[in-house]
Design a binder for these strands. Structure first.
Ligand code: ZN
Ligand code: ZN
Length: 715
DNA sequence: AGCACGCCGACT
DNA sequence: GTCGGCGTGCTC
């Protein structure tokens, strides 16, 4: 009998999208196992691959041998192998693509085990004072990142060798062969009776996934912390997933304060060394709590007991590159297959999630009261059409102007939301009516006053601001559609001396900058914060008593069946930033559609009312959760070729599929970066299998086709 | 995806 | 004569 292994080779092509079988030479037999990386011959070439199955055979004729096994651990832990298959089937991608998304590159292409010495860990053991020096900054870095391996230290400080030795001699840093718990964390806070009830209810029903629907400010994080304690008490591990933007030092600190150095962080800003250290610590069970962004859902937990998906309605949980998975679905998969409790937490559940709760597929528990002393804010809707009719054309309505006045007079803070960056969203010629478009995209360019440029928000292309119309040469150029820069300027103009901060992608590039701005506003270093949706999430500003939503309709008119849902969620979440203290709060929503159900229910903070209205529409129009959507996008440099490919493919599908197909039609953004784009949307009634057909779909060469199951971005 | 084989045009 | 263009075919 000869041992053979099935290997998925790391080449992303249709023809190699299946395992290949190799025989295992005697001398490698002890080193190769499920999930291990292997070097294998492939044609006349040699390639990397991962073992996804193994067995024994009598004969090895026609098989080639495994050439080498570089690691002493599986890069894809055996529990995760079925997940790779599930991802590639469900989201229609190649297996190596799924594996690439699941295993960090620093692990996949790490040093071979022979080259990797014994792992040495460094931890601070005493505080150290000192002037700003190389040595002191190394110490501070260690204190912040500990426990860290030597590799990680050297990655951050290439010259750290001698300094490390000195720090160890001073006795402020210790070298260890395994990290020791430096901080045990504090005892749990006591819960409110509501929170206690929720924890007990979920724990009693932990054999199934739960929706925790808690109004903004109801203390969901405290519930997560208590559930984590219970899971850790069983000797298991916990994962808390957050939108990348919410993964601030304060958030992490709340978990670190409770659970000490057992807590690890996972996000896109980690260095390769940090990533590899954390990955191994999770796999070996040394790290028991991970607070992380989307991709943390693939970490190789030894014994996963709890997955929390906070702000579960957030669209950023949908991956935009292949495999285009939804973090919620992966979290639920892991819960099912690894026996972990899954908790989906939010004030404004996704419609699909709420539907599952109604159907009994999810346990459902509610925190309907804010923590002691906080009241839900009062919400007023201002009809901007009426303002216009009464000849008030300012971007701030009279009620909002008055409210800002009063709030500033009381020395309280104001938050103003607007979901558009820049100064003016478009630039128009008054003579010929032509708006300035991006040369590469079929969209108008946005005027940015900060940089004094026109910017395309889809391809980042920049242009000088025209003084004359590029079409007709007229100098009657006008600016329309206010963005955050304009709102900031308007506040500064209207209330001279008032300190205004702005939060959008143009001023906040890094997590650090975001954090500094948050701290500054929290400390009262400004009176008004103007921002995009990046400040609508779980931020906690006790001194904010007024939230103004400058243009509630901006998401409402997007060509997306979720536009009402998103508007509702954004309004409720934004309103939740007001009144996070006993001071109470007030929210003013400016809109041109005051009678739209997304607005009326948001003004009432009425999730259930919105759900009932929206679910009826979804059913009538054949959208999720009543159908499964597949978005097909054809992209290429020639419009006729793209259109033709789309038409042929959709015809081919219509001959074989009962499900309704919308399109093909030019995409809402018909051209992007010089490429033409056509869309079609399959509305598959739940159950009909579209996957196999889509796999066989003809794909003529010069046009590329991307397939997205359950699309979230349909532009 | 890589890599080799193969069969036609213009180059040291 | 041969160097190289990229069409076609294959990978346990
Ligand atoms: Zn563009
Ligand atoms: Zn013009």
């Amino acid at each position: 009998m000869v041992r053979v292994v099935d290997v998925v080779v790391d080449r992303v092509v249709q023809a190699l999208d299946r395992p290949f079988t190799y025989w295992v030479p005697e001398e490698l037999a002890d080193h190769v196992d499920l999930g291990y990386r292997v070097r294998v011959p492939l044609g006349r070439d040699v390639a990397w691959g991962i073992v996804v199955a193994q067995s024994n055979r009598e004969e090895t004729t026609g098989l080639k041998p495994v050439l080498a096994v570089p690691d002493a651990f599986p890069v894809l832990t055996p529990k995760l192998i079925p997940l790779a298959h599930w991802l590639s089937e469900r989201y229609l991608c190649y297996l190596p693509q799924a594996i690439r998304a699941m295993v960090p590159k620093s692990v996949r292409s790490g040093q071979s085990k022979s080259a990797r010495g014994r792992t040495v860990w460094y931890q601070t053991v005493k505080p150290r004072e000192g002037r700003a020096s190389q040595k002191q900054s190394l110490y501070l870095w260690l204190a912040e990142h500990q426990p860290v391996t030597r590799q990680a230290v050297l990655a951050a400080f290439p010259q750290a060798g001698p300094l490390l030795r000195q720090l160890i001699q001073e006795g402020v840093v210790a070298e260890r062969s395994a990290p020791r718990e430096v901080r045990l964390g504090s005892a749990p806070y006591s819960l409110t009776p509501d929170q206690q009830h929720v924890v007990d209810t979920i724990w009693a029903g932990r054999d199934r996934p739960w929706l925790l629907q808690g109004v903004t400010g109801s203390g969901k994080t405290e519930v997560y912390l208590h559930l984590l304690s219970r899971v850790l008490g069983q000797g298991r591990q916990g994962l808390v997933l957050l939108p990348e933007i919410s993964l601030t030092p304060q958030t992490v600190a709340r978990f670190r304060d409770r659970f000490g150095s057992r807590v690890g962080v996972w996000h896109s800003g980690l260095s390769d060394g940090e990533r590899r250290d954390t990955w191994h610590a999770v796999r070996e069970g040394r790290m028991t709590v991970i607070v992380g962004a989307r991709s943390a859902v693939f970490l190789p937990f030894l014994d996963l007991g709890l997955v929390v998906l906070d702000e579960e309605h957030e669209p950023s949980y949908k991956q935009e590159e292949h495999p285009r998975y939804h973090t919620r679905e992966v979290a639920l998969w892991r819960g099912r297959h690894e026996g972990a409790l899954v908790v989906l937490g939010t004030a404004t559940p996704a419609l699909e999630t709420l539907h599952r709760a109604h159907q009994g597929e999810l346990g459902w528990t509610v925190l309907s009261r804010r923590v002691a002393g906080w009241r839900l804010p009062t919400v007023e809707v201002v009809d901007m059409r009426q303002e216009l009719r009464e000849n008030h054309r300012h971007i701030f309505s009279r009620p909002l102007l008055a409210a800002i006045d009063q709030t500033l007079a009381r020395q309280e803070q104001v938050v103003l939301f607007l979901n558009r960056r820049g100064y003016s969203t478009f630039v128009l010629c008054r003579s010929c009516g032509q708006a300035v478009e991006c040369p590469d995209c079929a969209v108008t360019m946005t005027y940015h006053q900060d940089s004094e440029k026109l910017v395309c928000h889809y391809c980042q292309r920049q242009q000088p601001v025209p003084t004359r119309c590029p079409e007709c040469g007229s100098d009657k150029i006008r600016y329309f559609g206010a963005g955050t820069e304009r709102v900031q300027a308007e506040v500064e103009h209207q209330w001279p001396g008032v300190r205004v901060l702005r939060a959008d992608r143009d001023v906040l590039h890094t997590r650090d900058q975001y954090d500094r701005l948050y701290q500054a506003f929290l400390q009262g270093e400004a009176d008004v914060l103007v921002g995009t949706q990046m400040i609508a999430k779980g931020l906690d500003f006790p001194r904010v008593s007024l939230v103004g939503i400058v243009a509630a309709d901006s998401a409402l008119n997007l060509p997306d069946f979720r536009s009402a849902e998103r508007t509702f969620q954004l309004l409720v979440q934004a309103a939740g930033r007001a009144g996070r203290s006993e001071r109470g709060g007030r929210v003013i929503i400016q809109t041109y559609n005051p009678e739209h159900y997304a607005l009326t229910f948001a003004a009432q903070q009425n999730m259930e009312g919105f759900y009932q209205a929206e679910v009826l529409l979804r059913q009538e129009l054949g959208y999720p959760p009543f159908t499964e959507l597949w978005l097909l996008e054809w992209i290429g440099p020639s419009e006729t070729a793209v259109q033709y490919a789309a038409r042929v493919a959709v015809e081919w599908l219509r001959e074989r599929l009962n499900a309704p197909i919308l399109g093909p039609a030019p995409a809402p953004i018909a051209r992007l970066r010089g490429q033409y784009r056509y869309h079609a949307l399959i509305k598959s009634p739940n159950g009909e299998d579209v996957t196999d057909l889509l796999r066989e779909l003809p794909r003529p060469d010069p046009v590329s086709l991307a397939v997205t199951r359950d699309p979230y971005f349909m532009m």
